[in-house]
Each structure stands twice: as structure tokens, then as C-alpha cells.
């Protein structure tokens, strides 16, 4: 279970630009939930994920994971339990390494990185089988530098990499935003498959209301650092795009976009 308790997060503290994004933010996510998060730009979705992953510190409040207070834990320590795909396709892999090298690194997550050979040829078939599921022809390009892949291919690789180890939490931040509609569809299906397979708790930020309605077990809408809509269970399953579109337009219009 993930708990955000009375979170306060400010930016540019002590400068004229000081802004308070979260002021007593609370959210509780049960184990195994697949939460879709929608909201206007700047409503704090990415920041919420950054706080959970430890990429940003909180100003006050607690973040609790399965009863354990992880508020002070370093990003790389929390990462043991977390797989994450970023909004920016470049962030999910190392550009100068090949697909094979990236996967070999990810394959070793939660073990030690010692002075033993990084690449185990015996694992290649396993890597290929993972890539085949993406349907992007990556399985035949293991020796290509990741930096030369398209945004969609890189995002697919990032999704595979994030799921290569045993994770409890899967974090997805508009991970289909940079993709063409067809790749986007494929990546969403894969995402759903991974979440079910891993029985992971998932948090997915998306701008695509259809995905938010179609996938997941819970739907949250955010605005200005607050949760303005929260549907779970049956209520979520019965939600149609039109039901949330009006509210979404309201908050988007307020923001001027």
C-alpha cells in the first residue's frame, strides 16, 4: 500500500517565485490497484510521482510504503521496488549503450554490479522474446545504440526494462504521449499485460482520457495539487469518457489550455 500523508511541496522557496504545489496532499493506494491519473498541465502529476520515487524531497509530510516510512530514503534505494517509465523517452535507457547492454544492465537490477562479465549470451533469447512482444522489430537490433532508436521504440524498450526485475510498483508518466497512435495502442496493451503479470501496483499518468477510462481499476483527476475526482471499483468500470470530459474541460479551461 502506498500512502501520501499530509504532503507539502513548495518550489523556489525563499525567492519571489515561491509557489506551493501541494499543501496537505493525501492519497492512499491499495496494493494491486491500477490507478489512472489525469489532470491539466501543471496540476502536479509528475511531481507526485517524483515525490513517491524520491527524485524530489518533500517539504513536510510522509510517504509510506507497505507500512514503512520511506520519506527520507534515497531515490536509488527506493528503486528496488519500483519500475518507472518517464514522460521523456530518453530517460528510460542509456543512449550510448546498445539495446543488449541496456537490457543486460536491467537484468542485473537488485544484484551487485561487480567485476564479472556484463553480458551473458545465454540470456539473449530471453531478451529477444521480451522485445518481440513489443512488435517493433527491436529483437533483431540488439546491437544498435539506443540513442538511434525512435521515441516510440525507446519508450517500448523503457517499458520492457522497467519490468525486467521483480517490482511492486510500476510508475508510468504519459509514457505514450510521444508515440504515434498505433505504437501508443500497442504500448498500452503491453502495459496492461505487464501490470497483470507482475500483480504490481500501478500509477499511470495519461492525457488520453480513453486510456484512463478503458484501463485500470481506479481513476483520479488532479487540479492545482489537489484530487478533484476519484473513482474506484464498480464506479470506475462504469465511467464513460463523457462523464469525465466535462470536468476535465473545466479544469483545463481554467488553466487556459
Amino acid at each position: 500500500m502506498i500512502e501520501f500523508i499530509d504532503i507539502v511541496k513548495k518550489f523556489n522557496v525563499g525567492t519571489p517565485d515561491e509557489t506551493t504545489l501541494f499543501d496537505g496532499f493525501n492519497l492512499k493506494i491499495e496494493k494491486g490497484e491500477f490507478v489512472c491519473v489525469v489532470g491539466s498541465n501543471g496540476s502536479g502529476k509528475t511531481t507526485m510521482l517524483n515525490l513517491l520515487c524520491g527524485s524530489l524531497p518533500v517539504d513536510s509530510g510522509k510517504i509510506v510504503l507497505d507500512g514503512k516510512n520511506i520519506t527520507k530514503m534515497n531515490e536509488y534505494v527506493r528503486a528496488k521496488y519500483i519500475g518507472r517509465v518517464f514522460q521523456d523517452p530518453q530517460k528510460g535507457s542509456a543512449a550510448k549503450l546498445t539495446i543488449l547492454e541496456n537490457m543486460a544492465l536491467a537484468d542485473n537490477k537488485n544484484k551487485r554490479y561487480l567485476l564479472t562479465p556484463a553480458i551473458n549470451k545465454k540470456r539473449m533469447d530471453y531478451y529477444k522474446s521480451l522485445l518481440e512482444e513489443c512488435n517493433m522489430g527491436l529483437e533483431n537490433r540488439l546491437d544498435v545504440q539506443v540513442g538511434s532508436l525512435s521515441g516510440g521504440q525507446r519508450q517500448a524498450l523503457a517499458l520492457v526494462i522497467a519490468n525486467m526485475s521483480d517490482i511492486d510498483i510500476l510508475i508510468l508518466d504519459e509514457h505514450t504521449a510521444a508515440l504515434d497512435p498505433k505504437s501508443s495502442e500497442r504500448i498500452m496493451q503491453l502495459t496492461d499485460m505487464f501490470v497483470k503479470e507482475k500483480k504490481a501496483t500501478a500509477l499511470m499518468v495519461t492525457h488520453n482520457l480513453r486510456y484512463a477510462v478503458e484501463y485500470g481499476t481506479r481513476l483520479i483527476m488532479m487540479d492545482k495539487g489537489r484530487i478533484v475526482l476519484d473513482k474506484a471499483g464498480e464506479e470506475k468500470q462504469n465511467t464513460k469518457i463523457d462523464d469525465i470530459l466535462y470536468q476535465f474541460n473545466q479544469i483545463s479551461i481554467e488553466c487556459g489550455n
Binding site: 519500475g83 541496456n102 522497467a162
Partner: peptide, 28 residues
């Protein structure tokens, strides 16, 4: 030889993407 070990590959990854290394649960 070093650059082909796990530790060496992690070094190369650190150079291009520190956050990726963090997500591998390693201290960049």
C-alpha cells in the same frame, strides 16, 4: 576488460543517464 564488466557498463550508463542508474537501484 573493465568496461565490459557489470561495474564498467554501469559506469558507461552513469555517464549518459544518471536517473536510469538510480532506477536500476544503484548509486550513480
Amino acid at each position: 576488460w573493465y568496461l565490459k564488466t557489470k561495474n564498467g557498463l554501469l559506469l558507461r550508463a552513469t555517464g549518459c543517464n544518471e536517473q536510469y542508474v538510480s532506477m536500476l537501484a544503484q548509486n550513480p
